[in-house]
Design a binder for these strands. Structure first.
Lengths: 214, 214
DNA sequence: AGGATAACCAAACGATCGTTTCATTTCGCA
DNA sequence: TGCGAAATGAAACGATCGTTTGGTTATCCT
């Protein structure tokens, strides 16, 4: 059988090593021996060690941002947007766990290359806009500071890399639902209000290019 | 004037360097030159580079755990316990920002030495017990999975190290209050219910050694 | 088939790092 | 004042790392 692309093997080995030991503590020999070749041979695929980091991280980073972009262009009510954004975030973290973990631990901290900080800022701003929609429409009147509320949500989601493991006892869907209920409804329950989880209706209501109010 | 203890200078320089560049990417020469001495001379204070990491991190880690231990031994209602635990967590992150950041980025990830994971687990279990109290008493009936809800809260709190900076425009107290409102009440407001923030009453109702139900 | 190109081997280099060693200076205290 | 210990200077070590180089093998295309 034609064995799968060597490049993918390298990226996966690099991602796994970066996640477990961190970028700086991972040597090229670790990665090379994991795929069964000499460390010098890696330079047929890369120009530097950092190339591996960016290659590992680019895919999921763009995907998670694009999904939020699409969601922001719909005219769903803010409550539903928050719910879907949460589900989307959790699911991408689930299906690209190793890569996403490397991003959050190595890129979103320390390294502040303008390309990546721009992505982080856009993601934050898009989510904050949704929260502001809810504040303006009166739905989210508990929010005194939309940015802080948004960062609280992002923190809960990104912290998943510290405890969630794909294939564990906790399924990604239940975690997402619990997060939604918690953020929309809070710990304390009110009796009425339609804020509990429902099965997701995959409607795709894309507005024809709505201008985003930053 | 008698200049402050050299040991403190070393720890502070190490903490700052570890937070900005990470433990592995920080060289002993970085730390030595920051305090104005040769890297070899550091070995009059330490036995290895890792000693610096543990020395940086031990203080706040024990403090934040002890505060939650004391709070758990009171008989305050669960809502008030959550509020105080949140405030305490934010305040320690604020006043020991650099040290706590190093802990969360270098210890709570990768390194899994039994001493530290035991602390992490105890903190998580104590907080989860509070949530369970609220579930059992019927106050937190929105919670279907107490552990997930607890980890959501911890995630929001610990993610502060990624965006909060002491002395910035956002004060630690307002952040803590917004977090409390968000987690107790959710984004969507109900009209009644006493879940909004109040000025903190410093009552210290310590029960005489209550047995903790793990 | 055969030549070009990609893939990989194997070794080495130069730099950096944590650590050790020993000499020297500074400081507390009798 | 002088002595012993603590603190720092200064240099070197062995190991490891990212990267380079040049040669060898495998693969693909016409």
């Amino acid at each position: 059988m034609p064995r799968p692309s060597r490049w993918n093997e390298i990226i996966e080995a690099a991602a796994e090593a970066f996640r477990t030991n961190g970028f700086a503590a991972t040597s090229l020999e670790d990665i090379a021996s994991a795929v069964g070749m000499w460390k010098g041979s890696l330079y047929h695929y890369i120009n530097s060690k950092e190339d591996l980091l960016f290659a590992v991280v680019r895919g999921p980073a763009e995907e998670i941002l694009n999904q939020l972009r699409e969601l922001s262009d719909t005219d769903l009510p803010p409550t539903e947007k928050i719910r879907r954004a949460t589900r989307s975030h959790v699911q991408i973290l689930n299906s690209n766990f190793v890569y996403a973990s490397v991003y959050l631990q190595e890129i979103a901290g320390r390294r502040k290359l303008p390309e990546w900080t721009a992505m982080d800022r856009e993601y934050l701003n898009l989510l904050e806009s949704i929260v502001r929609e809810g504040v303006d429409s009166g739905e989210f009147s508990a929010v005194t500071n939309p940015r802080v509320a948004t960062l609280a949500l992002i923190g809960s989601l990104n912290w998943l890399t510290h405890w969630y493991r794909p294939g564990g006892t906790l399924h990604a869907d239940e975690i997402a639902d619990q997060f939604c209920d918690l953020f929309l409804g809070g710990l304390i329950t009110r009796k009425t209000q339609a804020s509990r989880s429902q099965t997701v209706t995959p409607l795709k209501t894309t507005k024809p290019r709505a201008k985003r109010t930053a």
